[in-house]
Design a binder for these strands. Sequence first.
DNA 1: GGTCAAAGGTCAAAGAAAGTCAAATAAGGA
DNA 2: TCCTTATTTGACTTTCTTTGACCTTTGACC
Lengths: 157, 157
Amino acid sequence: MANISDVIEQFLVQLFADSDNVSISRNELANYFSCAPSQINYVLMTRFTPARGYVIESRRGGGGYINLTRLSDNRDKLLDELVNIPVSGGMTYTAAVQILHRLCESKILDENTAKLIAAIMSDKALIAPAVVKDGLRAGMMRSLAAALLKKEDKENG
Amino acid sequence: MANISDVIEQFLVQLFADSDNVSISRNELANYFSCAPSQINYVLMTRFTPARGYVIESRRGGGGYINLTRLSDNRDKLLDELVNIPVSGGMTYTAAVQILHRLCESKILDENTAKLIAAIMSDKALIAPAVVKDGLRAGMMRSLAAALLKKEDKENG
DNA sequence: GGTCAAAGGTCAAAGAAAGTCAAATAAGGA
DNA sequence: TCCTTATTTGACTTTCTTTGACCTTTGACC
Protein backbone atom coordinates (compact mmCIF):
# COMPACT_ATOMS: atom_id res chain seq x y z
CA MET A 1 0.00 0.00 0.00
CA ALA A 2 2.89 2.29 -0.65
CA ASN A 3 1.41 3.97 -3.65
CA ILE A 4 -0.46 7.24 -3.56
CA SER A 5 -3.31 5.99 -5.67
CA ASP A 6 -4.32 3.50 -3.01
CA VAL A 7 -4.01 6.10 -0.29
CA ILE A 8 -6.23 8.50 -2.17
CA GLU A 9 -8.67 5.73 -2.84
CA GLN A 10 -8.87 4.94 0.87
CA PHE A 11 -9.34 8.57 1.68
CA LEU A 12 -12.22 8.85 -0.71
CA VAL A 13 -13.78 5.64 0.46
CA GLN A 14 -13.79 7.02 3.99
CA LEU A 15 -15.65 10.08 2.82
CA PHE A 16 -18.41 7.72 1.85
CA ALA A 17 -18.85 6.66 5.45
CA ASP A 18 -21.47 9.33 6.03
CA SER A 19 -23.09 9.71 2.71
CA ASP A 20 -23.46 8.17 -0.69
CA ASN A 21 -22.53 11.41 -2.28
CA VAL A 22 -19.19 13.10 -2.09
CA SER A 23 -18.07 16.31 -3.67
CA ILE A 24 -14.43 17.15 -4.04
CA SER A 25 -12.18 19.72 -5.62
CA ARG A 26 -9.57 18.10 -7.78
CA ASN A 27 -6.95 20.72 -7.12
CA GLU A 28 -7.48 20.79 -3.39
CA LEU A 29 -7.21 17.06 -3.18
CA ALA A 30 -4.11 16.98 -5.33
CA ASN A 31 -2.63 19.63 -3.17
CA TYR A 32 -3.50 17.77 0.00
CA PHE A 33 -1.74 14.68 -1.24
CA SER A 34 1.02 16.61 -2.96
CA CYS A 35 0.43 14.95 -6.26
CA ALA A 36 -0.37 15.99 -9.77
CA PRO A 37 -4.01 16.89 -10.29
CA SER A 38 -4.28 14.33 -13.02
CA GLN A 39 -3.41 11.72 -10.43
CA ILE A 40 -6.87 12.28 -9.04
CA ASN A 41 -8.33 11.50 -12.43
CA TYR A 42 -6.27 8.36 -12.52
CA VAL A 43 -7.62 7.21 -9.19
CA LEU A 44 -11.16 7.97 -10.22
CA MET A 45 -10.75 6.30 -13.55
CA THR A 46 -9.28 3.11 -12.17
CA ARG A 47 -11.16 2.78 -8.87
CA PHE A 48 -14.40 4.69 -8.92
CA THR A 49 -15.73 3.24 -12.10
CA PRO A 50 -19.34 2.44 -12.87
CA ALA A 51 -18.27 -1.18 -12.82
CA ARG A 52 -17.42 -0.77 -9.17
CA GLY A 53 -20.64 1.03 -8.52
CA TYR A 54 -19.72 4.67 -8.75
CA VAL A 55 -20.97 7.43 -10.96
CA ILE A 56 -18.98 10.58 -11.50
CA GLU A 57 -20.10 14.01 -12.59
CA SER A 58 -17.98 17.08 -12.82
CA ARG A 59 -17.83 20.65 -13.92
CA ARG A 60 -14.94 22.81 -15.05
CA GLY A 61 -14.28 26.47 -14.64
CA GLY A 62 -14.65 28.73 -11.62
CA GLY A 63 -16.52 26.92 -8.90
CA GLY A 64 -15.83 23.62 -10.60
CA TYR A 65 -16.14 20.33 -8.76
CA ILE A 66 -16.12 16.58 -9.04
CA ASN A 67 -19.08 14.72 -7.67
CA LEU A 68 -18.97 11.06 -6.78
CA THR A 69 -22.03 8.95 -6.15
CA ARG A 70 -21.88 5.50 -4.73
CA LEU A 71 -24.50 3.07 -5.88
CA SER A 72 -25.95 0.44 -3.62
CA ASP A 73 -24.69 -3.05 -4.30
CA ASN A 74 -27.93 -4.79 -5.10
CA ARG A 75 -27.87 -3.42 -8.58
CA ASP A 76 -29.66 -4.81 -11.51
CA LYS A 77 -27.55 -7.39 -13.24
CA LEU A 78 -28.41 -6.22 -16.71
CA LEU A 79 -27.56 -2.62 -15.99
CA ASP A 80 -24.31 -3.69 -14.48
CA GLU A 81 -23.43 -5.45 -17.67
CA LEU A 82 -24.53 -2.64 -19.89
CA VAL A 83 -22.48 -0.11 -18.08
CA ASN A 84 -19.41 -2.06 -19.02
CA ILE A 85 -20.33 -2.93 -22.53
CA PRO A 86 -17.43 -2.37 -24.90
CA VAL A 87 -18.13 0.27 -27.48
CA SER A 88 -15.93 -1.53 -29.93
CA GLY A 89 -18.47 -4.29 -30.05
CA GLY A 90 -21.13 -1.96 -31.31
CA MET A 91 -24.86 -2.42 -30.99
CA THR A 92 -27.39 -2.72 -33.76
CA TYR A 93 -30.67 -0.91 -33.50
CA THR A 94 -32.41 -4.24 -33.11
CA ALA A 95 -30.17 -5.24 -30.24
CA ALA A 96 -30.76 -1.89 -28.57
CA VAL A 97 -34.51 -2.31 -28.82
CA GLN A 98 -34.27 -5.75 -27.32
CA ILE A 99 -32.32 -4.43 -24.41
CA LEU A 100 -34.80 -1.63 -23.88
CA HIS A 101 -37.50 -4.23 -23.90
CA ARG A 102 -35.78 -6.22 -21.22
CA LEU A 103 -35.38 -3.09 -19.14
CA CYS A 104 -39.11 -2.58 -19.39
CA GLU A 105 -39.75 -6.10 -18.24
CA SER A 106 -37.61 -5.45 -15.22
CA LYS A 107 -39.63 -2.32 -14.51
CA ILE A 108 -36.54 -0.25 -14.87
CA LEU A 109 -38.03 1.65 -17.75
CA ASP A 110 -41.60 2.24 -18.75
CA GLU A 111 -42.84 1.62 -22.25
CA ASN A 112 -43.19 5.26 -23.04
CA THR A 113 -39.69 6.16 -22.11
CA ALA A 114 -38.35 3.13 -23.92
CA LYS A 115 -40.07 4.23 -27.09
CA LEU A 116 -38.58 7.66 -26.88
CA ILE A 117 -35.14 6.27 -26.31
CA ALA A 118 -35.55 3.88 -29.20
CA ALA A 119 -36.42 6.82 -31.40
CA ILE A 120 -33.29 8.63 -30.28
CA MET A 121 -31.17 5.60 -31.03
CA SER A 122 -32.73 4.87 -34.39
CA ASP A 123 -30.77 4.95 -37.60
CA LYS A 124 -32.79 7.93 -38.65
CA ALA A 125 -31.86 9.89 -35.56
CA LEU A 126 -28.18 9.14 -35.82
CA ILE A 127 -26.97 11.21 -38.69
CA ALA A 128 -23.63 9.61 -39.32
CA PRO A 129 -22.01 7.08 -41.62
CA ALA A 130 -23.64 3.71 -41.21
CA VAL A 131 -20.47 2.08 -39.99
CA VAL A 132 -20.28 4.21 -36.87
CA LYS A 133 -23.91 4.04 -35.81
CA ASP A 134 -23.52 0.80 -33.93
CA GLY A 135 -20.64 2.19 -31.98
CA LEU A 136 -22.62 5.29 -31.14
CA ARG A 137 -25.51 3.24 -29.87
CA ALA A 138 -23.22 1.21 -27.64
CA GLY A 139 -21.86 4.39 -26.09
CA MET A 140 -25.33 5.78 -25.63
CA MET A 141 -26.57 2.60 -24.04
CA ARG A 142 -23.67 2.66 -21.65
CA SER A 143 -24.47 6.18 -20.54
CA LEU A 144 -28.11 5.29 -20.22
CA ALA A 145 -27.22 2.36 -17.98
CA ALA A 146 -25.09 4.57 -15.78
CA ALA A 147 -27.89 7.08 -15.43
CA LEU A 148 -30.37 4.33 -14.65
CA LEU A 149 -28.11 2.84 -12.03
CA LYS A 150 -27.99 6.16 -10.29
CA LYS A 151 -31.72 6.58 -10.45
CA GLU A 152 -32.39 3.04 -9.31
CA ASP A 153 -30.17 3.63 -6.39
CA LYS A 154 -31.87 6.78 -5.29
CA GLU A 155 -35.22 5.08 -5.41
CA ASN A 156 -34.11 2.13 -3.35
CA GLY A 157 -32.89 4.33 -0.59
CA MET B 1 -22.20 26.38 -5.50
CA ALA B 2 -19.09 28.39 -4.97
CA ASN B 3 -19.53 30.64 -7.95
CA ILE B 4 -21.40 33.90 -8.01
CA SER B 5 -23.18 33.15 -11.25
CA ASP B 6 -25.08 30.27 -9.71
CA VAL B 7 -25.98 32.35 -6.69
CA ILE B 8 -27.35 35.14 -8.84
CA GLU B 9 -29.24 32.63 -10.92
CA GLN B 10 -30.89 31.22 -7.81
CA PHE B 11 -31.75 34.68 -6.62
CA LEU B 12 -33.44 35.49 -9.90
CA VAL B 13 -35.25 32.19 -10.07
CA GLN B 14 -36.73 32.92 -6.67
CA LEU B 15 -38.06 36.20 -7.93
CA PHE B 16 -40.08 34.19 -10.39
CA ALA B 17 -41.88 32.40 -7.58
CA ASP B 18 -44.63 35.00 -7.55
CA SER B 19 -44.82 36.12 -11.10
CA ASP B 20 -43.78 35.36 -14.64
CA ASN B 21 -42.33 38.79 -14.96
CA VAL B 22 -39.38 40.21 -13.12
CA SER B 23 -37.79 43.60 -13.44
CA ILE B 24 -34.33 44.35 -12.18
CA SER B 25 -31.71 47.06 -12.24
CA ARG B 26 -28.40 45.75 -13.48
CA ASN B 27 -26.32 48.08 -11.38
CA GLU B 28 -28.27 47.53 -8.20
CA LEU B 29 -28.02 43.81 -8.60
CA ALA B 30 -24.31 43.95 -9.34
CA ASN B 31 -23.86 46.11 -6.32
CA TYR B 32 -25.88 43.78 -4.14
CA PHE B 33 -23.70 40.85 -5.12
CA SER B 34 -20.49 42.89 -5.25
CA CYS B 35 -19.71 41.89 -8.78
CA ALA B 36 -19.09 43.56 -12.08
CA PRO B 37 -22.28 44.71 -13.80
CA SER B 38 -21.38 42.68 -16.84
CA GLN B 39 -21.54 39.65 -14.61
CA ILE B 40 -25.27 40.10 -14.59
CA ASN B 41 -25.27 39.98 -18.36
CA TYR B 42 -23.26 36.81 -18.21
CA VAL B 43 -25.77 35.15 -15.94
CA LEU B 44 -28.65 36.24 -18.13
CA MET B 45 -26.91 35.14 -21.28
CA THR B 46 -26.01 31.70 -20.00
CA ARG B 47 -29.05 30.90 -17.86
CA PHE B 48 -32.06 32.91 -18.88
CA THR B 49 -31.91 32.04 -22.51
CA PRO B 50 -34.76 31.66 -24.96
CA ALA B 51 -33.90 27.98 -25.04
CA ARG B 52 -34.92 27.86 -21.41
CA GLY B 53 -38.02 29.80 -22.11
CA TYR B 54 -37.09 33.27 -21.04
CA VAL B 55 -37.31 36.52 -22.92
CA ILE B 56 -35.31 39.55 -21.95
CA GLU B 57 -36.07 43.15 -22.69
CA SER B 58 -34.11 46.09 -21.45
CA ARG B 59 -33.69 49.78 -21.68
CA ARG B 60 -30.65 51.94 -21.19
CA GLY B 61 -30.30 55.44 -19.93
CA GLY B 62 -31.85 57.10 -16.90
CA GLY B 63 -34.53 54.90 -15.43
CA GLY B 64 -33.18 51.95 -17.37
CA TYR B 65 -34.14 48.40 -16.46
CA ILE B 66 -33.91 44.78 -17.43
CA ASN B 67 -37.10 42.86 -17.74
CA LEU B 68 -37.26 39.10 -17.63
CA THR B 69 -40.29 37.19 -18.75
CA ARG B 70 -40.84 33.52 -18.37
CA LEU B 71 -42.86 32.07 -21.17
CA SER B 72 -45.34 29.37 -20.52
CA ASP B 73 -44.72 27.12 -23.40
CA ASN B 74 -47.10 26.27 -26.08
CA ARG B 75 -46.51 22.55 -26.22
CA ASP B 76 -47.18 21.88 -29.82
CA LYS B 77 -45.30 24.90 -31.01
CA LEU B 78 -42.22 23.79 -29.16
CA LEU B 79 -42.36 20.31 -30.60
CA ASP B 80 -43.08 21.60 -34.06
CA GLU B 81 -40.03 23.76 -33.90
CA LEU B 82 -37.90 20.89 -32.74
CA VAL B 83 -39.09 18.53 -35.40
CA ASN B 84 -37.93 20.94 -38.02
CA ILE B 85 -34.69 21.96 -36.43
CA PRO B 86 -31.93 21.90 -39.04
CA VAL B 87 -29.28 19.35 -38.30
CA SER B 88 -26.73 21.52 -39.98
CA GLY B 89 -27.16 24.05 -37.20
CA GLY B 90 -26.08 21.52 -34.64
CA MET B 91 -26.94 21.54 -30.98
CA THR B 92 -24.57 21.82 -28.06
CA TYR B 93 -25.12 19.63 -25.04
CA THR B 94 -25.99 22.71 -23.04
CA ALA B 95 -28.65 23.72 -25.54
CA ALA B 96 -30.06 20.21 -25.53
CA VAL B 97 -30.35 20.23 -21.76
CA GLN B 98 -32.11 23.55 -21.85
CA ILE B 99 -34.62 22.24 -24.34
CA LEU B 100 -35.22 19.14 -22.27
CA HIS B 101 -35.81 21.41 -19.33
CA ARG B 102 -38.44 23.28 -21.25
CA LEU B 103 -40.10 20.07 -22.31
CA CYS B 104 -40.37 19.23 -18.64
CA GLU B 105 -41.91 22.55 -17.80
CA SER B 106 -44.48 21.94 -20.50
CA LYS B 107 -45.23 18.57 -18.96
CA ILE B 108 -44.24 16.88 -22.18
CA LEU B 109 -41.47 15.01 -20.38
CA ASP B 110 -40.92 14.18 -16.77
CA GLU B 111 -37.69 14.99 -14.99
CA ASN B 112 -36.57 11.40 -14.83
CA THR B 113 -36.91 10.79 -18.51
CA ALA B 114 -35.24 14.08 -19.25
CA LYS B 115 -32.24 13.07 -17.20
CA LEU B 116 -31.93 9.80 -19.02
CA ILE B 117 -32.13 11.49 -22.38
CA ALA B 118 -29.59 14.05 -21.31
CA ALA B 119 -27.25 11.22 -20.40
CA ILE B 120 -27.75 9.66 -23.81
CA MET B 121 -27.01 12.95 -25.50
CA SER B 122 -23.98 13.81 -23.42
CA ASP B 123 -20.55 14.22 -24.93
CA LYS B 124 -19.49 11.17 -23.05
CA ALA B 125 -22.18 9.04 -24.57
CA LEU B 126 -21.54 10.15 -28.11
CA ILE B 127 -18.34 8.47 -29.07
CA ALA B 128 -17.44 10.43 -32.15
CA PRO B 129 -15.20 13.28 -33.20
CA ALA B 130 -16.13 16.43 -31.34
CA VAL B 131 -17.10 18.25 -34.51
CA VAL B 132 -19.94 15.89 -35.32
CA LYS B 133 -21.48 15.62 -31.86
CA ASP B 134 -23.58 18.73 -32.21
CA GLY B 135 -25.00 17.50 -35.47
CA LEU B 136 -25.80 14.14 -33.92
CA ARG B 137 -27.63 15.76 -31.06
CA ALA B 138 -29.71 17.86 -33.42
CA GLY B 139 -30.76 14.73 -35.28
CA MET B 140 -31.52 12.94 -32.04
CA MET B 141 -33.59 15.83 -30.75
CA ARG B 142 -35.53 15.88 -33.96
CA SER B 143 -36.36 12.21 -33.66
CA LEU B 144 -37.32 12.70 -30.05
CA ALA B 145 -39.68 15.50 -30.97
CA ALA B 146 -41.21 13.40 -33.71
CA ALA B 147 -41.76 10.54 -31.28
CA LEU B 148 -43.32 12.90 -28.76
CA LEU B 149 -45.66 14.34 -31.33
CA LYS B 150 -46.73 10.88 -32.33
CA LYS B 151 -47.41 10.02 -28.74
CA GLU B 152 -49.44 13.18 -28.19
CA ASP B 153 -51.40 12.44 -31.30
CA LYS B 154 -52.33 9.03 -30.09
CA GLU B 155 -53.33 10.34 -26.70
CA ASN B 156 -55.55 12.97 -28.19
CA GLY B 157 -57.30 10.43 -30.35
C1' DG C 1 -31.22 71.26 -30.32
C1' DG C 2 -27.05 70.28 -27.51
C1' DT C 3 -24.93 68.47 -23.48
C1' DC C 4 -24.40 65.32 -19.97
C1' DA C 5 -25.07 61.90 -16.62
C1' DA C 6 -27.22 57.48 -15.97
C1' DA C 7 -28.19 53.28 -17.46
C1' DG C 8 -27.41 49.09 -19.89
C1' DG C 9 -24.36 46.46 -23.79
C1' DT C 10 -20.17 44.28 -25.76
C1' DC C 11 -16.08 42.17 -25.94
C1' DA C 12 -11.84 40.40 -24.91
C1' DA C 13 -8.38 39.19 -21.54
C1' DA C 14 -7.39 36.93 -17.35
C1' DG C 15 -8.44 33.43 -14.01
C1' DA C 16 -10.12 29.06 -12.21
C1' DA C 17 -11.19 24.60 -12.57
C1' DA C 18 -11.25 20.06 -14.62
C1' DG C 19 -9.85 16.83 -18.77
C1' DT C 20 -6.55 14.44 -21.88
C1' DC C 21 -2.65 12.22 -23.28
C1' DA C 22 1.71 10.48 -23.55
C1' DA C 23 6.25 9.85 -21.64
C1' DA C 24 8.76 8.18 -17.68
C1' DT C 25 8.95 5.23 -13.91
C1' DA C 26 7.88 1.41 -10.81
C1' DA C 27 6.12 -3.21 -9.75
C1' DG C 28 5.08 -7.95 -10.74
C1' DG C 29 5.07 -12.15 -13.04
C1' DA C 30 6.84 -15.73 -16.45
C1' DT D 1 15.99 -11.03 -16.83
C1' DC D 2 12.36 -9.36 -19.81
C1' DC D 3 7.83 -8.29 -20.63
C1' DT D 4 3.55 -6.53 -19.18
C1' DT D 5 0.83 -3.75 -16.44
C1' DA D 6 0.13 -0.07 -13.11
C1' DT D 7 1.41 4.39 -11.44
C1' DT D 8 3.27 8.99 -11.55
C1' DT D 9 4.17 13.43 -13.72
C1' DG D 10 3.69 17.18 -16.39
C1' DA D 11 2.57 19.72 -20.53
C1' DC D 12 -1.23 21.12 -22.96
C1' DT D 13 -6.43 21.64 -23.80
C1' DT D 14 -11.18 22.78 -22.92
C1' DT D 15 -14.77 24.79 -20.40
C1' DC D 16 -16.77 28.07 -17.52
C1' DT D 17 -16.40 32.37 -14.79
C1' DT D 18 -14.86 36.92 -13.49
C1' DT D 19 -13.26 41.50 -14.43
C1' DG D 20 -12.65 45.71 -16.59
C1' DA D 21 -12.28 48.94 -20.32
C1' DC D 22 -14.84 51.03 -23.64
C1' DC D 23 -19.44 51.74 -26.38
C1' DT D 24 -24.37 53.04 -27.08
C1' DT D 25 -28.84 54.59 -25.75
C1' DT D 26 -31.99 57.37 -23.18
C1' DG D 27 -33.94 61.10 -20.78
C1' DA D 28 -33.42 65.47 -18.25
C1' DC D 29 -32.02 70.00 -18.29
C1' DC D 30 -30.30 74.02 -20.17
